[in-house]
Computed example of a mutant assay.
Amino acid sequence: MEVYHEPYDVNCPVICMDEKPFQLLNEVRQPIPMKPAKPLREDSEYERNGTCSIFIFTEPLVGWRHVEVRNQRTRMEWAEQVRALLDVHYPQAPKIKLVMDNLNTHSVASLYHAFDPETALRLAKRLEIHYTPKHGSWLNIAEIELSVMTRQCLGRRIPSITELSDELSAWEQSRNQIQKGVDWQFTTKDARIKLKRLYPQFKD
């Protein structure tokens, strides 16, 4: 995507966002800790504690990411996350280029659903939205961050939103401290070859 190859602009940073459902699970029996030559052993039975949604925002060029956990993934949650992005994390940026998939909740209309017209318009004016192609959400760098987060944080049973939030907050802080960025090497020329089927066909 061309937007990833543009030079860094503090007045219009590129931010990628994505969200992930997560099932909260509690242990029925306490796992047996690992010992030398013996792996962790846990019972196959578990207790379901409902589901939640993980929202992640990342600015690839500076190696920043922020994670939030919410009970649901409705228009309201997305709009509230976007308002926090603009007003809390990037209050000085006149505009933000927001890269995300085209889920039906990911739209300016959600801002008007959640807030009064003046607030929604103020937020919308600061957004330049770039949707990833249908079946091409892997072009969203936030998916890379979600993959890393899943491997490093979510490989065990977590029983509550509070515990999950604490885990992800610690992961966010650690990953931001080492400023781990993304070296994006997929070019527009590559896309026209790999994603040829997504381009319109014109006949003479």
Score class of each variant (00 low, 15 high):
residue 1 M to C: 09
residue 1 M to H: 10
residue 4 Y to H: 00
residue 7 P to I: 07
residue 10 V to M: 11
residue 10 V to F: 12
residue 11 N to P: 00
residue 11 N to D: 14
residue 12 C to P: 05
residue 13 P to A: 05
residue 13 P to R: 06
residue 14 V to G: 00
residue 14 V to E: 04
residue 15 I to C: 04
residue 15 I to A: 03
residue 17 M to N: 06
residue 17 M to F: 13
residue 18 D to H: 02
residue 19 E to F: 00
residue 22 F to M: 03
residue 24 L to Y: 01
residue 25 L to V: 13
residue 26 N to A: 15
residue 26 N to L: 06
residue 34 M to G: 12
residue 36 P to D: 14
residue 40 L to Y: 06
residue 41 R to E: 14
residue 41 R to P: 00
residue 41 R to W: 07
residue 41 R to N: 10
residue 42 E to V: 13
residue 46 Y to H: 13
residue 47 E to S: 13
residue 49 N to V: 04
residue 49 N to L: 03
residue 50 G to K: 07
residue 51 T to R: 14
residue 51 T to V: 08
residue 55 F to L: 06
residue 55 F to W: 10
residue 56 I to N: 03
residue 57 F to D: 00
residue 57 F to I: 04
residue 58 T to A: 07
residue 64 W to F: 07
residue 66 H to L: 09
residue 66 H to W: 15
residue 66 H to V: 11
residue 71 N to E: 12
residue 73 R to T: 09
residue 75 R to H: 09
residue 77 E to W: 00
residue 78 W to C: 01
residue 78 W to H: 00
residue 84 A to Y: 07
residue 88 V to E: 15
residue 97 K to Y: 01
residue 101 D to L: 01
residue 101 D to T: 03
residue 102 N to M: 06
residue 103 L to Y: 11
residue 103 L to Q: 00
residue 103 L to I: 09
residue 104 N to A: 12
residue 105 T to K: 05
residue 107 S to Y: 03
residue 108 V to Q: 08
residue 109 A to I: 05
residue 111 L to A: 02
residue 112 Y to T: 06
residue 114 A to K: 02
residue 115 F to D: 01
residue 115 F to A: 02
residue 116 D to Q: 14
residue 116 D to S: 09
residue 117 P to F: 06
residue 117 P to H: 05
residue 121 L to V: 12
residue 121 L to F: 12
residue 122 R to A: 11
residue 122 R to G: 04
residue 124 A to G: 06
residue 129 I to C: 01
residue 131 Y to P: 04
residue 132 T to N: 04
residue 134 K to C: 06
residue 136 G to E: 07
residue 137 S to N: 03
residue 137 S to V: 05
residue 139 L to W: 02
residue 140 N to T: 02
residue 140 N to Q: 03
residue 144 I to Q: 10
residue 144 I to H: 07
residue 146 L to Y: 03
residue 147 S to Y: 04
residue 148 V to Q: 09
residue 148 V to T: 12
residue 152 Q to Y: 08
residue 154 L to S: 00
residue 156 R to I: 09
residue 158 I to M: 02
residue 159 P to S: 05
residue 159 P to F: 06
residue 162 T to M: 07
residue 164 L to R: 00
residue 165 S to R: 02
residue 166 D to M: 11
residue 173 Q to K: 15
residue 177 Q to T: 14
residue 177 Q to W: 07
residue 180 K to W: 08
residue 180 K to F: 09
residue 182 V to A: 05
residue 183 D to F: 06
residue 184 W to A: 05
residue 185 Q to T: 14
residue 185 Q to N: 09
residue 190 D to L: 04
residue 190 D to G: 01
residue 192 R to E: 15
residue 194 K to P: 03
residue 194 K to Q: 15
residue 194 K to F: 13
residue 197 R to I: 08
residue 198 L to S: 11
residue 199 Y to N: 10
residue 200 P to I: 05
residue 201 Q to K: 14
residue 201 Q to H: 13
residue 202 F to S: 11
residue 202 F to M: 13
residue 204 D to A: 14
